[in-house]
Design a protein around this nucleic acid. Structure first.
Lengths: 130, 130, 130, 130
DNA sequence: GTGGTCTAGACCACT
DNA sequence: GTGGTCTAGACCACT
């Protein structure tokens, strides 16, 4: 996982989304430890406070819980929650793109065409390595 | 056109996108005056400086040009530029949504399903009044 | 002669410079009439007030004088004045470019090279039609 | 670095050019922090918004990138970009001066003479202290 | 502490 | 009337 310091998306949000996707994808099963604050901050070359803020956000959303002296762990229903949230996020993104298209008077056929092209351009996921 | 002051998207960017879409849709043909800074600001109930910032951005993108003492006009190739940009923006939005989906390990079939649902939920444009 | 409505250089200044160069080049000899306000404004597709402002500026500089009921005429020493002014303007432009180069730590040799290249790229004046 | 509030060149552009030259000259290496908005504004005795506008422009040009909570940093390829841009700017200035000269019918020999004179009048950079 | 947005309002140049 | 710049100052998000 990486972080883009050039992006205008806040770093802590980039981390939140990265972890959310990882949990949804099953990389971190329930009751499993996430990387420690310090290690993760070191890896990502960011301030530990920033990782802390990301973990706080994930805890607020119920995806993870913290145990003092132990660390941050994925919640029991963390995987499915993350999947639901990820899907909602995808939906929202699609809706926004569709609305932008309509505001500019693009036909639905055109939007559909763009969708198919983009899906293919993004590569066959079966063969992709993320 | 309206602006949502509670949105996390900066007001000036909301204005940029609104005008870009309007130009793409042919509402403002080339060499046509856009609303004056002061009038538009009054209509939208925002500060003229905010509208100015939006117009600056549009000028930088080549959609409009300004003439002191006259106003802001749509560029010769403004309509087609706006259409191109709007389409590129839709593409980018779709790509981003698709990437988010894949990061969360959603299947392409699922994404496609979400797309169709969202397109329909957004209403049939033929019957919409914008 | 033409005017670029897209440029951020004020239109009246574009006109001033255009006429100054024409006078310097001998296109309008002393005691010769310049185009009338209305005609010139019509030709350039600008507001007569704008041409007026340009003529005012040229009169202030002593290049032209106006005679009521007659028009605007080139001053006795208008040609040489215009030449002197044009040369001063060229000098100022060169000095500014040289200073910018030095601020960016370009060597004088490099600037000299750029000058020669630019002079040639601008074409052989003997064969140019302006 | 200084700013001339009486100049007809907007203050924010003076700042842009000053920083561009400084980056090109290597004063601010890549991934180095520029002065903070507030500090720089205090030093230059201008409003922070004015410095902000200058930094925005530099970011748009790809010379710097901003990180909230951190500051404004020189981009990876900022130095070379600034050098390229500075040279292009010098070229444009020279071309403009040459064109003005030709419009006024000055001979190329004369322009060349003016160039040499100006270069010398501007002082020998080897002995100059900036 | 850092940058980013926004308001209120002044003043100027241009057409 | 029009756009463009600038100040003063508030408030927010981020690290």
């Amino acid at each position: 996982m990486q972080v883009d310091p050039t992006s205008h998306v806040p770093i802590y949000l980039q981390i939140v989304e990265g972890i959310r996707a990882a949990i949804a994808a099953g990389v971190h099963p329930p009751d499993t430890l996430l990387p420690s604050l310090r290690n993760f901050a070191f890896e990502l070359k960011v301030n530990p406070n920033t990782v802390q803020k990301a973990y706080d956000e994930l805890e607020r959303e119920g995806l993870v819980y913290s145990r003092r002296g132990v660390g941050i762990l994925v919640a029991q229903r963390g995987t499915e929650s993350a999947q639901t949230q990820a899907e909602a996020k995808v939906r929202a993104g699609l809706r926004q793109a569709i609305e932008a298209a309509r505001a500019a008077n693009l036909s639905d056929e055109r939007v559909q065409q763009l969708f198919v092209e983009t899906l293919q351009a993004a590569g066959n996921p079966a063969r992709r390595k993320s």
